[in-house]
C-alpha cells in the first residue's frame, strides 16, 4: 500500500488546472521544471556522491540549442528538441570526461568552472546567442497536434514529462546500476577492488544527469519562450543544489520538496515580503539547524521520534 500517497499526490497534481487560476498553474509548471532540475542533480549529489555546481550549464545548452535551431535556423520544435538532446549529451560527455578526473571539492570546482565557460559563451557568442538580448520567439511544440499554448495544457505536458523522468530515476536507483553507483559513492576503492570500473559508472551517471537537466532546459525554454544567459548563471546552479540539499539528497522525494520550497519562496513569497532574499536565507538557515539531513528525511525522523 506504499503507492497510495504517491497516487494521491499525482491525482491532486493532475487536477490542479481545473481548480487553480492561470497564475497558480504557471507557478506549478515552474515548480515542475525546478523539480526535474533538482532530481537530475540529485542523481549526482545524492546517489553518486559527486557535488556539482554546474548543473545549469546543461539546462542552458539544451535551451540555447533549442532556441537557436528553432528561431534562427527555423527547424520545427520537435527537431529542435532532438538536436538539443544530442547537444546536451555531447556536452555532458565532454564535461564528464574532464570533471571526473577529480572527485569531492575538485569535482565541484571543475563543474563550476565549466558552467561559467558556457555562461560566458552565452554572453559573448553574440552571433548565436544574441548576447545580453537573449533569444525570443521560441515556439512550443504541439505533440499529436495538441497545442501547448494554454497554461493548463503546458502544465499537463510538463507533469507527464517530469513524472516519467522521476519514475525513470526511481527505477534506476533501485536497479543493480543504482546499487553499484551507491557503492562507488560509499566505498570507491573496494568497488574498484571488486572489479567495477568506478570511473565508467560515474561517467554514466553524469551523462544521465546531464541529459535529464537538458530535458528540464527544454521545458524551461518552452515555458518562458525566451532564453537569457542569466538562466545558466552560477546562481541558477546553486539554486538547484540548494533545492537538493534542502529537500534531502539521496532520497527520491527530497528534490521534489526542495525545489517546491525554493520556487515558492522565490516566486510567490517575494510578492508579500519586501526583503525576500533575507527570508530565503533565513529559511535555509532553519533547515540546516533543525533538519540538517534535509526536509524529507528530517521530517521522517521527527515523526518517527514522536511515535
Amino acid at each position: 500500500m506504499k503507492w497510495i500517497p504517491t497516487a494521491l499526490v499525482l491525482a491532486a497534481a493532475a487536477l490542479l488546472p481545473l481548480l487553480g487560476g492561470d497564475f497558480y498553474v504557471n507557478l506549478a509548471s515552474q515548480i515542475l521544471v525546478a523539480v526535474l532540475m533538482a532530481a537530475s542533480l540529485n542523481l549526482l549529489v545524492g546517489y553518486a556522491g559527486l557535488t556539482s555546481l554546474g548543473q545549469a550549464a546543461f539546462l542552458g545548452v539544451a535551451a540555447y540549442t533549442c532556441a537557436w535551431t528553432g528561431v534562427k535556423l527555423g527547424v520545427s520544435p520537435v527537431v529542435a528538441a532532438g538536436l538539443a538532446c544530442l547537444m546536451t549529451l555531447a556536452v555532458s560527455a565532454l564535461f564528464g570526461a574532464i570533471a571526473l578526473r577529480a572527485s569531492g571539492l575538485g569535482f565541484l570546482m571543475i563543474t563550476l568552472a565549466m558552467s561559467q565557460v558556457v555562461w560566458g559563451l552565452a554572453y559573448r557568442l553574440v552571433a548565436i546567442s544574441n548576447g545580453d538580448n537573449g533569444i525570443s520567439g521560441i515556439v512550443r511544440p504541439s505533440p499529436l497536434g495538441l497545442s501547448l499554448d494554454s497554461p493548463g495544457a503546458f502544465y499537463w505536458f510538463t507533469l507527464l514529462v517530469v513524472v516519467l523522468a522521476l519514475w525513470f530515476i526511481a527505477i534506476l536507483v533501485r536497479s543493480s546500476f543504482g546499487a553499484t553507483l551507491a557503492g562507488t559513492r560509499d566505498q570507491p576503492q573496494r568497488m574498484a577492488a571488486l572489479g567495477h570500473n568506478v570511473w565508467l559508472i560515474r561517467f554514466a551517471a553524469f551523462m544521465i544527469s546531464g541529459f535529464l537537466a537538458g530535458i528540464a532546459g527544454l521545458l524551461f525554454v518552452w515555458y518562458n519562450k525566451y532564453i537569457h544567459p542569466s538562466a545558466l548563471s552560477m546562481t541558477a546552479s546553486a539554486e538547484a543544489l540548494l533545492a537538493v540539499i534542502a529537500g534531502g539528497s539521496g532520497t527520491l522525494a527530497g528534490p521534489v520538496v526542495g525545489a517546491a520550497v525554493v520556487v515558492l519562496l522565490k516566486n510567490y513569497a517575494s510578492a508579500y515580503v519586501e526583503r525576500w532574499n533575507m527570508m530565503l536565507g533565513f529559511v535555509f538557515l532553519l533547515i540546516v539547524l533543525f533538519l540538517p539531513e534535509g526536509i524529507v528525511p528530517g521530517v521522517k525522523r521527527l515523526l518517527g521520534r514522536g511515535r
Binding site: 545580453d132 538580448n133 537573449g134 525570443s136 520567439g137 518562458n224 519562450k225 525566451y226 537569457h228 542569466s230
Partner: peptide, 9 residues
C-alpha cells in the same frame, strides 16, 4: 532591456 524582451511575447 532584457526584462522587456523576456515579457515581449
Amino acid at each position: 532591456a532584457f526584462e522587456a524582451l523576456a515579457i515581449d511575447d
